[in-house]
Simulated scan of single mutants.
Amino acid sequence: MRDVAALAGVSLKTVSRVVNAEAGVSTDVRTRVERAIGQLGYQHNLAASNLRRANARTGTVGVLLQDVSNSFSASLLRSLEDAARARDVAILASSLDEEAERERTLVGSLVRRRVDGLVLMPATHVQDYLADELRSGLPVVFVDRTPHGIDADSVTVDNRGGAVTGTAHLIDQGHRRIAYLGDLPTIETAAARLAGFRQAHAAAGLEVDPRLEVSGLRSEEAARASVTALLALDEPPTALFAARNSLAIGAVQALRAQGRTRDIALVGFDDFPLADVLDPALTVLRQNVRRIGAEVARMLFARLDGDDSPPRHVVIEPVLVVRGSGEIKP
């Protein structure tokens, strides 16, 4: 900055005002400084600049999701990026893969890097290890899953209610043997969706065959194998409820391999790219990912701007999108 100031014939403070886009600099002086910056190849050291400020902001936010390659997480991350870009904030993102120790390690790494805030889709069951950080003023917003052991802002989806809606839709089509494909039952969202699946059956006066409830599925391949096994039962299901987008993809693959895509009804929880161009197109419970991301960003940046009101918990309802696969009769 001293070299820029000397070349432009201005004070160090004037250079600082130009690089920080502050007012109080004439057009002529600003042009001279910018020309000197270009000649010298000067790059503003934002980290050093932030350390000199009273609030010691780093202009970074940590975002820890379960799997950034998953379409839900990827869309959520993009929504957060759009909001952060408008404030010239960089996002540091990583996947947790449902590993509690990985979560604690990555959170610790981000905190040591002094991120200004944290967005967390937790893999841990209790997050009281964050209590000290919350007390010290680190804004933390939970997404997709609610906090436990601490109270912090959160944006979640009505997973149980969505599963009730999706399962009831299949029951309304006349199905009585509906198979459930779900993730690990220890995951909060998966447990809620399984509860909703059972609730819809109970509301209709139906019992669920335990053989038709398959949990612990972590991949498309696992879902594909499970559907193949379910269809080989002496009393196979006439419909499938896939409680995660990757599991719905595996189910479609299994049905297609057996030429059964128009025989077995299928409803998935979470939309994904090209779900609407399958044959038949996939009926899904769509989460409004853009709205979820916008709510998370609004909460986080409000805290960074000084909002010290009690934590808020926003719950967003998923929407049933009828496309054809969920309307196949038994």
Rank of each mutant, 00 (worst) to 15 (best):
I178H: 10
H201Q: 02
R224A: 13
G174V: 00
T189E: 02
T186I: 14
E213D: 03
S219D: 08
P185M: 09
R176I: 13
G161Y: 05
V214F: 08
L230W: 01
L212M: 10
Q199C: 12
A202H: 12
G161I: 03
E221F: 04
D183E: 14
T189W: 11
L194H: 12
D183T: 14
L170F: 07
L184Y: 11
A200V: 02
G166E: 08
H201R: 09
R224M: 12
E207V: 05
R224Y: 05
G166K: 03
R176Q: 15
Q199L: 13
A229T: 08
A191Y: 02
D172F: 03
D172R: 14
A168Q: 12
E213V: 14
A204Q: 08
I187Y: 05
A223T: 01
R218N: 15
A229L: 11
V164I: 15
T167C: 04
R176L: 14
L212R: 07
E221Y: 06
T167W: 11
A200C: 03
G216H: 00
L206P: 00
Y180F: 14
E213M: 10
H175R: 07
A179H: 08
G216T: 00
T167E: 09
T186Y: 12
L170D: 05
G162P: 08
G162Q: 05
G166S: 09
R177I: 07
E220N: 11
L184E: 14
G166A: 08
G174S: 10
T165R: 14
A195N: 01
G182M: 09
R218M: 12
G166N: 07
L181P: 00
G182S: 05
A179M: 04
I187V: 15
R193A: 05
G174N: 12
A190K: 01
R218S: 14
G216S: 02
A204C: 02
P185H: 06
A163K: 08
L184S: 15
A168V: 00
H175Y: 03
G174Y: 10
A203S: 05
R177T: 09
E221Q: 15
D172V: 03
V208Q: 10
R193E: 09
L170S: 04
A195C: 06
A229V: 09
G196N: 11
D183L: 14
E220T: 15
A229N: 09
L230P: 00
T167Q: 07
